[in-house]
Design a protein around this nucleic acid. Structure first.
Lengths: 172, 172
DNA sequence: CTTTTTAATCAGGTCCCCCTGACTAAAATT
DNA sequence: AATTTTAGTCAGGGGGACCTGATTAAAAAG
């Protein structure tokens, strides 16, 4: 039986981490120490980018189902990404209803550097700590995937595949 | 010299965690398995609530400086919280320019349950893992506080105190 | 007793994430 | 050929986190 206090401690630290990292990002952004427009948080537009770096050339519909989004939301994000020259839209030749979304070089690069970026706050951790953290987060993330899968009976939910596999490829 | 690969692994897991936990929350919310209006992410309104649970009866100005926000933003969040019956506003009697913000019982309770909530995904971790996670996050968070303090030369930046001390009180 | 500083407010904006409803155009069915 | 399904689009919204600018009321200072 796990110690409830320990759980609460960890939970608190996690909340704290969420808040503080968010604030740090915002401060950095306001101080213009940050070149990019916006950090690209891997929600919304970021999610789309990530899905595409794993599987380029998806249709909007496919993107929407994979990302658990309404098609219209997906369209919105895609359009925003087009404006930033991170992806392109082109009509499918085999099925002219479909629009194929592809990463531009810039888009691919952005996704890569964005995910490969090592935050400064990790640099003081020892190798052991990094390993522990990775192992623990792996466990946590898997739990979360299960949670999502349980809640969304959409059998074609490729969310986990989209996120996890991509990151695995990038990092392992 | 720390292993760069290990850093990247951890960084990736952290990104993944951010995305996945966010998605899980959204899914839960859409499925109405979530009673509350909105999860209260401890930014914006949530930050205000947290600051108040540590130090009740602050003025809006004090809140703003502590939270690194424009006074107008603070006012906006406070007003939203008032509508939700989580805080109250009252004019200070000693200085009638000031507006004192106080938590309602509901507000205090909300902050408490919100922060004390142990996410399901922590329940499968062993005691050892929980301890490791807590230790590592403590280190990371401290790094982030330093980052923020370095970037904001506002000497009166009580951000760290507001966030960390409160959570410490709650969890330790 | 003025002038200046301070705490708030209102007004208006920017950008983000995300959704429903209504409607076309192109495939797949019947 | 006529109908239905499918992929997208437009229009419109709701809520959230923030911000700048202009203005008021009250306290502090000169």
């Amino acid at each position: 039986m796990p110690d409830l206090t320990k759980q609460k401690n960890a939970a608190g630290k996690l909340i704290e981490f969420g808040m503080v990292s968010h604030t740090a990002e915002e401060v950095a952004h306001r101080n213009h120490l940050d070149k990019e427009d916006h950090p690209l948080r891997f929600q919304g537009q970021g999610k789309v980018l990530l899905a595409l770096s794993q599987d380029d050339g998806l249709s909007q519909k496919e993107l929407a189902t994979r990302l658990n989004l309404a098609v219209q939301s997906t369209a919105e994000f895609v359009n925003k990404l087009v404006k930033k020259d991170l992806v392109t839209k082109e009509k499918s030749t085999t099925d002219r209803r479909k629009t194929i979304i592809r990463l531009t070089d810039l888009g691919r690069e952005t996704a890569a550097t964005e995910t490969a970026k090592v935050p400064a706050y990790l640099e003081t951790l020892t190798d052991t700590e990094l390993e522990q953290l990775t192992a623990i987060l792996t466990k946590i993330n898997n739990n979360l995937y299960d949670e999502i899968d349980t809640m969304t009976p959409t059998q074609s939910n490729k969310f986990k595949a989209t996120v996890a596999d991509h990151l695995r490829d990038w990092f392992l």
